[in-house]
């Protein structure tokens, strides 16, 4: 049980970097960026390439973020410059990244046990908490700057951004690049954590990101002071934790995907559930019965 809780916290922390990245595109920019499916393993394979090339684990991780931003640049180019719809642009980027990921190391599965990792010599959970705190604080600070607010305004109302004399596309580019960088960083952290990079590790990853946002938005939804980044982190942790709990209760690991989907369904239903409506219907029933 204890190791299970620890594992789910550690994985939740890794996925919260992804969730913050997805928050920028899906929630702040209102841009359904599907490239995440390719960017997550891209980060893992980039890390594998760099670490096997002799770079230190820290440099490799940071460079995975840097190169990951290029995926955002690609999606931006497809969407804004070539005028392909946002959803399709992301899917095309993810498809292209599939090949790039395979080409990067020449194989679809690469073990990393023989290389050093940033967790070495420390408790992984401590390292991860430090990384997530750094990401969260940087992100919060960025969203309070002039550029950060324009990023929010771009997702809200592009006409306003243009009327402020700014090119709203510039802010889409900034958002997409940061988002994809964070997702790649999350992939690099995951590869080091599990000890291998694998081509299928991105499959369905967008669901994890969106689920984290939904769960994070549902809990304490009346609390206005909770920042979007905090919600994303809490969402990722809770989402991962419920899944782990289900397995601990005796469900097979093969059931995990179905459990994950059910978690999302429960949280979505809870959001649209209106107790007042039910109450009204009940009162109605009482009146109807009285009439009889």
């Amino acid at each position: 049980m204890n190791t299970l809780i620890l594992t789910s916290i550690e994985q939740g922390l890794i996925f919260s970097v992804l969730a913050i990245g997805v928050t920028i595109t899906f929630k702040i920019l209102d841009f359904a960026d599907m490239s995440v499916e390719g960017t997550f393993p891209f980060g893992a394979f980039l890390f594998a390439k760099l670490i096997s090339g002799g770079f230190s684990p820290l440099i490799s991780t940071l460079l995975s973020f840097t190169f990951g931003t290029l995926a955002g640049l690609l999606t931006y180019t497809l969407n804004i410059k070539l005028r392909i719809k946002a959803l399709l642009s992301g899917i095309l980027t993810a498809t292209m990244l599939y090949t790039i990921n395979l080409r990067l190391n020449g194989k679809s599965n690469m073990g990393l046990f023989s290389y050093p990792s940033i967790y070495e010599g420390h408790e992984p959970v401590i390292v991860l908490i430090l990384i997530i705190l750094a990401v969260k604080m940087l992100m919060d600070a960025f969203l309070k700057t002039e550029v950060g607010y324009l990023l929010i305004a771009t997702g809200d109302n592009e006409t306003l951004v243009k009327s402020l004399g700014e090119d709203s596309n510039k802010y889409k580019l900034i958002g997409l690049m940061i988002s994809n960088g964070l997702v790649a960083l999350s992939g690099a952290l995951m590869a080091q954590y599990q000890g291998f990079a694998e081509i299928t590790m991105g499959t369905g990853i967008i669901v994890v990101g969106i689920a984290s946002i939904i769960v994070g938005d549902t809990i304490l939804r009346r609390n206005k002071l909770l920042k979007a980044t905090t919600r994303a982190i809490m969402g990722a942790l809770i989402y991962k934790f419920i899944g782990a709990l289900a397995i601990d209760l005796g469900l097979a690991p093969t059931d995990l995907k179905a459990i994950n989907a059910i978690i999302v369904i429960i949280f979505l239903t809870y959001n649209t559930f209106n107790p007042l409506k039910i109450k009204k219907a009940d009162e109605y029933k009482v009146v109807e019965e009285a009439k009889c």
Binding site: K144, T145, E146, Y149, L164, G165
Partner: peptide, 9 residues
Amino acid sequence: CQKFTLRKL
């Protein structure tokens, strides 16, 4: 129409 920077808004 001024320059938007990384300073606090």
